[in-house]
């Protein structure tokens, strides 16, 4: 099973790497690049929401912080993009640390509120300050090289995904986070330091978010508080994670692909009904919470597990040799 997954991953990687050589339509490449960005955002969101059990409604703020850091450093400080981009991640990490300091010691609702309020405060700040250009936003020099952005976005998301896969699914770190999610007190009794681990998870989730924001700023070349720091980014990340499956790595990826495809189609054909999109997002979250709390991928995993159990209990597939092989 493991070998099969690995083979699929290599195949997918090869296809995605070769993609720009046979997709020449700039628009299609642009859509795919944005889709990859959303996969990265959703996976990063899931680290703190799904694995640790703390809802970060300020996810979009960290994205915007990264974008604004890159824009300000490049436009006002004349930094090269290669230096400004890591700075975006660093600023997002520092912001996460500051925001997490008082709130991560407390119960989940406090954190959800505080991050939500923080996002609004940051947006307000960006609207009022001179250095951010206020409500007019900022323009960046245009680099008309879609392939460059495709590979950059893909590279960052692939590295993030692999790193998170190792940390959350292979290293003990993921198990520790899950222990905190299930029982804060119990985790403490096991000798874990929940506050510290939660902080690590929060910072870990904010760094790729900030970096993706930075790439986005340079790629789109125009950022303003309404689009970059608004609620929409957090809302969409939440939909993707809840719909795809919280607390899994593949769930957010599936959610991101489905929701992003829907969004693209929606904006292409129904852009006159912008507010309808809000209703659909809300309804999607509500319906998945009520009827599919584990999300698409989580429900599938659960079904597969019960099917296996049933087969084993009816004695249909008990074959010791096979079982041994799988165990190896």
């Amino acid at each position: 099973m493991k070998g099969l997954n690995f083979r699929w991953a290599i195949l997918l990687l090869a296809i995605l790497l070769a993609l720009p050589t046979f997709v020449h339509d700039t628009f299609v490449l642009r859509v795919i690049t944005e889709g990859i960005m959303w996969i990265g955002l959703a996976v990063a969101f899931d680290v703190i929401a799904g694995y640790t059990g703390y809802l970060n409604f300020g996810h979009g703020a960290f994205f915007g912080l990264g974008a604004y850091t890159v824009a300000i450093l490049m436009m006002r400080g004349n930094w090269p993009f290669a230096l400004a981009l890591p700075a975006g991640g660093v600023v997002a990490a520092i912001a996460a640390f500051i925001a997490g300091l008082p709130t991560l010691r407390l119960k989940g609702p406090y954190f959800a509120i505080a991050t939500w309020a923080l996002a609004r405060a940051i947006q307000q700040l960006a609207l009022m300050m001179d250095i951010t250009g206020g409500p007019d936003g900022m323009r960046l020099p245009a680099l008309l090289n879609p392939q460059f952005f495709y590979y950059l976005m893909f590279g960052v998301v692939a590295v993030t995904f692999t790193l998170l896969w190792y940390l959350l699914e292979r290293a003990p770190f993921g198990l520790k986070l899950k222990a905190i999610r299930e029982d804060d007190l119990g985790a403490k009794a096991l000798g874990l330091n929940p506050t510290k681990l939660k902080m690590q998870s929060f910072v870990l989730s904010s760094i790729p978010t900030g970096i993706l924001g930075g790439i986005y700023a340079y790629w789109i070349t125009f950022i303003d508080p309404a689009s970059t720091l608004g609620d929409m980014i957090s809302d969409q990340a939440l939909v993707m994670v809840v719909f795809g499956g919280m607390g899994t790595l593949l769930g957010p990826v599936i959610g991101a692909i489905v929701i992003f495809s829907f969004k693209t189609l929606f904006w292409a054909y129904l852009s006159d009904y912008q507010v309808l999109y809000l209703i659909i997002l809300g309804a999607l979250i509500a319906l998945s919470v009520v009827f599919m709390p584990n999300g698409l991928w989580g429900t599938y995993l659960g079904k597969r597990a019960t099917r296996r159990k049933e087969k084993e209990s009816t004695g249909e597939y008990i074959d010791l040799r096979v079982a041994q092989k799988e165990g190896e």
Partner: peptide, 29 residues
């Protein structure tokens, strides 16, 4: 949403009311 055999009921409740708020805002607009 918050009861029954579900993982993390508090989180689910939070997500649900957030979804309600989103929907209401969309409907109002």
């Amino acid at each position: 949403v918050m009861s029954g055999n579900r993982g993390n009921p508090l989180l689910m409740g939070l997500v649900f009311t957030f979804a309600l708020a989103l929907m209401f805002q969309g409907v109002a607009l």
